[in-house]
């Protein structure tokens, strides 16, 4: 949990593989890296076994680059496609039992605060729609009601992709899937409204076809979670296998879905706005100056 763990052990430098060497010497640790610098530094994420053209991987890749302090970040996940690549990264990953990721993150976040005090250590939960809205629903909602200070990111592919295509709570009404041949009979769960009611300080929905926007959203969510309260990001990350999207049309699908049901939305509480403006200099949240009085 510091820059100390991203350097060579004395005497072992020459035995390290190239990827490790590049990570220590040209990784993003201790620097400010942005999406626009992609392709010129060694990324935290490594090679992973996820499907070709997976939009979830793209989102995870962007998220890893967007963490404000990657050396002080721990990711927590659960069963599902996402953990296949989240675990292949140079930051610690905690793998909970199915559905308890927000419970694990609550304890982790409190423990880190006890151990490190004011020094910010970020806990980021990244899990799928099944792990968060179905099986881990109670852990997720209760962590928000308790105002646990960490970021929750839902990788919403609207299906149980890892187990062959069963419907999840986040699947759209009427969607016919391989393991749901009659079509889903109920509406998609409105997790965004639930997050607002439960007291999240920052709630956003985003689609990964705008990398800079993804970066901005994740930075804000992680920074707010340091002191203000729980934050929630819901990202549409299509499953090109279960929804039969040709891999080269994944971004076209993301664009269509963004126009249809996944418009970008952002909810920030006044307290969080003030925190971002005062502590991290976000100009968009600075109080607007009073209009000049002009004499008629």
């Amino acid at each position: 949990m510091s820059l100390d763990y991203v350097k060579f052990s004395p005497g072992f430098e020459k035995f390290m593989p190239k990827e490790y060497r590049d990570m220590v010497e040209h990784g993003p640790f201790g620097k400010k890296t942005t999406v626009s610098q992609m392709g010129s530094f060694k990324e935290i994420l490594e090679e992973h076994p996820m499907c070709a053209g997976c939009a979830m991987t793209l989102f995870i890749r962007l998220a890893m680059i967007s963490f404000p302090n990657p050396e002080d970040t721990i990711t927590v996940g659960t069963a599902g496609c996402g953990r296949l690549s989240i675990s292949q990264a140079a930051i610690p990953f905690v793998y909970g039992n199915y559905g308890d990721q927000n419970g694990v993150a609550s304890g982790l976040s409190r423990g880190l605060r006890l151990r490190f005090g004011d020094k910010p250590k970020d806990v980021v939960v990244m899990a799928g729609d099944g792990g968060m809205a179905d099986i881990g629903f109670s852990c997720t909602l209760h962590s928000w009601f308790r105002k646990e200070k960490f970021t929750t990111i839902m990788l919403d592919n609207e299906v149980y992709g890892n187990t062959g295509g069963q419907e999840s709570g986040m699947t759209n009404k009427g969607a016919v899937l391989k393991m749901a041949p009659l079509g889903k009979k109920f509406e998609k769960m409105d997790m965004v409204s639930m997050a607002k009611s439960a007291g999240c300080a920052y709630v956003a929905t985003v689609v990964p076809n705008n990398p800079r926007r993804v970066e901005a959203v994740i930075k804000k969510a992680v920074l707010i979670a340091r002191e203000i309260g729980p934050t929630y990001i819901q990202a549409y990350t299509s499953c090109n296998i279960e929804y039969a999207i040709p891999t080269d049309k994944v971004m076209e699908d993301a664009k269509n879905v963004e126009g249809d049901r996944y418009q970008f939305s952002e909810y920030v509480t006044d307290e969080a706005k003030q925190f971002l403006a005062e502590r991290y200099g976000y100009k968009e949240f600075l109080p607007k100056p009073a209009p000049a009085v002009t004499k008629a």
Partner: peptide
């Protein structure tokens, strides 16, 4: 424009040489 680098799902695959 670097757009391909930003949209590739694989890390460190499309790289940039200035």
């Amino acid at each position: 424009c670097k757009l391909c680098t930003q949209f590739c799902p694989e890390a460190n695959t499309i790289l940039y040489n200035d």
